[in-house]
Each structure stands twice: as structure tokens, then as C-alpha cells.
Amino acid sequence: MSFQEKRAIVSLISTILITVLYCAYMVERFPLGDPYSAEVFRFWGAFFLILIPVTIVAKIVIHILFSILNTLATQEDEPAITDERDRLIELRASTLALYSFSLGFFLAMIALATGLPPSMLFVILICSGVAAEILSDFSQFSMYRRGF
């Protein structure tokens, strides 16, 4: 298995792990009561504001750890260059992620238009964001696996 395939798997697992742990931590802080109260919106604002830096930092740390462990285990260094095939694979994965998130955004707007509680909008946005990330990692793994 190539370094890029392993990196995609690590990214996939870390995305799932970070999301599950963060959601488990935040769900206890969800304000109960009126679903249209300002507290609910404050909660979701904080949810996204904290989630973004937490995900970035956690992914950087996991990537560094993976690179070190992989080098120790296989004596294979991380590829120093990103070539045209890497860029094409990344582009295709990004496009798939964009489609996935766009669909989620569309569904979130439907939820809002049909009068569902605002929390549903944010839950759909989170789910589509995670789905986009998972789809991107999985498609990268799949494309590296089969050649392109």
C-alpha cells in the first residue's frame, strides 16, 4: 500500500474520530427548551467556531504522527513532491466533496423552508460537511488504489 493510500485512510479515520468525539462532547451542552431561542443560535455559532480550529489542529497532529510512525515502520519517507497525478486525484476528490456539501446545503435550505427547527439546518450542514470529507478521503484512496 502506497503512502498516499495510507494517508487517505488515516484522514478518513481521523475525520470520523474527531467528529464523533467532538459531537459527543458538545451534545451535553445543547440548550434544552425553546428551539427558537437565542441560546440555541449561540450554541451553534460556538459549535462551528470551535469545530474548525479543533479539526485543523487535530488533523495536523495526526498527520505528523502518522508520518513519523510510517517512516519508523516502513523506512519509507513521505513523497517530497506532488505530481500531476496527485493534483488530478485531489481535484476530483475536491469536486466530489463540493457536490456532496452542495447537496447538504440544498437539503438544509429545504429544512428551513419547510419550517423545521433551526437546529435541523445546522445538523444537516454538519452531516453534509462530514459526508463531503469522508467522500473526499474515500475517493482519494480508491483512485490511488486503482491507479487513477
Binding site: 500531476e84 497525478r85 490511488y144 491507479g147
Partner: peptide, 19 residues
């Protein structure tokens, strides 16, 4: 040629058409 070994493998196996 300035690519990774994996790209050469993919080209040799006709799984990737180079630019």
C-alpha cells in the same frame, strides 16, 4: 521526470494516461 514512483507504476500498467 519529476514524478512519484507510484505515478510511473500507474503509467506502466496503463492505469493512468500521462500529460
Amino acid at each position: 521526470v519529476g514524478v512519484t514512483r507510484q505515478t510511473i507504476v500507474a503509467i506502466e500498467n496503463a492505469k493512468y494516461s500521462p500529460s
